[in-house]
Every structure is written in C-alpha cells, then in structure tokens.
Amino acid sequence: MNKLFFNLLGFAVLTILLSCEKELHKYEGKPAVYFNEAGRLPAFGGEVLRDSTIMSFSLAKAQDSIVSMVVATVGAKKDVDRPYKLVINSSSDAIAGNHYQILNPTFVIKKNQLGDTVKIKFFRKTDMQAKTFLLSFDLQENENFSPEMKYRVLTSSNKKISLINYRWFVNDIIKRPGRWLDGYLGVFTRKKLLLIAETLSIEPAYLDASVSIAEMTAYGKFMQRYLNEQRAAGNTIYEEDGSEMVMGASVQ
C-alpha cells in the first residue's frame, strides 16, 4: 500500500514539475514590441485610439513638419541597448527623400528604457495638393523582439486596430476654414487663404476655429485695401482662374 502511495505521489510531483516547466517556457520567448499610440491606455474617457494618423499641411504655413511615433515593448528593462526591426510596408507610396525623411539613425530600445521615439520629417510637396500619400510602417521580429501582440479590440466600438502596423496619411489638400465668412473674405480659394496668412502674419488654422467676427471684419477690410493698393501700383492680384481677387461684399 505504502509502495503504491509513493508511486502515485511521485507521479503527481512529476506531473506538476512538467506542467510548471511548460508554463515557465511560455515566458522564455522574446518581449513583444508594438506601436504605443495603438497600445497605450486612453488619456481620457471616450478617447478613440487608432493605428493611423492624418497629417495635413492644408492650414499650415510651414513647408515641413516633424512628427513622433513611439515604439514600446513589454517586459522588464534591460541594461543593454536592444535594436528592433522597423520596415516600410510595401503599400506605401510616399517617396523617401521627397515626401519624408526618417531622422533616426537606428531603431533601438536604449538600455533601461521600454520605448523609443521615431522622428519623421514630412515635406510639403505640390503633388500633395491633389493626392493623399501613405507611409506605412511594420514592426517585425528580430533577435530581441517579437511582434506577437498583433492587434487589440477596442471595447467601445469592438473595432480591431493593429499594434504592429502604423500608417501616416499625408496631404496638402486645402480645406475651407471653419470660420471663413464669404461676406467679409469673399469666395474661398487656396491662393486667397495663403495670401491672407502671409500678409497678416497669421496661421491659416487661426481662421478655422479661433478668429472672431470683429477680427474677420478687420481682416476683410485690410485685405481689400491691400488688393486695391496693389492694383493701383500696377500689380493686380488674380485668382488661379484668372479673375481679379476681391474680398467680401460687406467690406467693399
């Protein structure tokens, strides 16, 4: 009886040890790497996380823009630098050196860190006025990290977003500012918006959400006076369609 008992006990211990070994083996793999913007916690209630960003020059005066993309990893910090593999997805049609430049010399999680910031410089190009270009990144496996965390499901919408693919959509497709009033500024055109911004030293985006009616009136009157002065000096300013540029009826 005792012999049978000890045999069963030994078998149970062996089974437990084998189970523990299998459980421990799960954690011997490489740490997972992912795009932080999709994997982070929401900053506030109702925030919608996403695996892409639209980067538009439409209401900006700048000719280029530097953006940040954070790559993060799970697990403990290490006392050595750990390179990770970041590649351009073949679906991208943005052209390196023309539409963008990646400023990082290497892609590496530095020692005692759990993340890295990739800096991307986008250049404002004429072809962006008619088309949105895609720059898509993939995280791939290397000797240090595994992209095994492939996606997450948002509880608010049940939408699946990628943790290992991040997309940038960049364009310069102009939009009419939200507070643009034809009565003061006239018919909206790209050329007129950029001239107003240059002449008044304001950001085009200011006309989208911040400008007051009083300012709009002053801007319209100032710009019409400027256009009149340019015409009197023999430098009439025309729209792209060849018509003379004018401001709104309320400021004539």
Results as ranks from 00 to 15, higher is better:
Lys159Leu: 03
Tyr238Ser: 08
Val211Thr: 11
Ala209Met: 09
Gln224Arg: 09
Asn171Ser: 15
Ile237Thr: 09
Val246Lys: 15
Gly186Asn: 09
Tyr226Glu: 06
Met247Lys: 04
Tyr226Cys: 05
Lys221Gly: 05
Tyr206Cys: 00
Lys150Ile: 07
Val211Cys: 12
Ile161Phe: 03
Glu240Asn: 15
Asp172Met: 12
Asp208Gly: 10
Tyr184Ile: 00
Ile174Arg: 14
Asp241Lys: 13
Gly234Ala: 05
Leu194Trp: 05
Leu227Ile: 10
Asn228Arg: 07
Arg225Asn: 13
Leu181Ile: 13
Leu207Gly: 02
Tyr166Asp: 06
Phe169Gly: 01
Ala218Asp: 09
Gly186Val: 12
Ile213Tyr: 08
Arg179Ile: 11
Trp180Asp: 12
Asn228Gln: 09
Tyr151His: 12
Leu194Asn: 11
Ser210Thr: 15
Thr155Gly: 05
Lys150Asp: 07
Asn158Thr: 01
Thr236Leu: 04
Ala233His: 00
Leu200Lys: 02
Ala214Lys: 12
Ala214Glu: 13
Glu148Cys: 09
Gly220Met: 06
Gly183Pro: 02
Ile202Glu: 02
Gly186Gln: 09
Leu200Gln: 02
Lys160Ala: 01
Met247Ser: 04
Ile161Cys: 02
Gly186Ala: 11
Gly248Met: 02
Ser157Gln: 00
Phe169His: 10
Gln230Thr: 02
Ser201Thr: 06
Arg179His: 13
Ile202Gly: 03
Lys175Ala: 13
Leu181Met: 14
Gly186Thr: 10
Ile174His: 07
Ser243Asp: 14
Tyr166Leu: 00
Tyr206Trp: 07
Asp241Trp: 14
Ser201His: 04
Val153Asn: 10
Ile164Val: 04
Gly178Ser: 12
Met247Glu: 05
Glu215Gly: 12
Thr199Asn: 02
Asn165Asp: 02
Met245Leu: 11
Leu227His: 10
Ile161His: 04
Phe188Cys: 04
Tyr184Gln: 11
Gln224Pro: 04
Leu181Arg: 14
Ala232Trp: 09
Asn165Lys: 11
Ser156Glu: 13
Met245Ala: 10
Arg179Pro: 05
Gln224Asp: 05
Glu229His: 04
Ile237Met: 07
Gly178Tyr: 08
Ala197Cys: 03
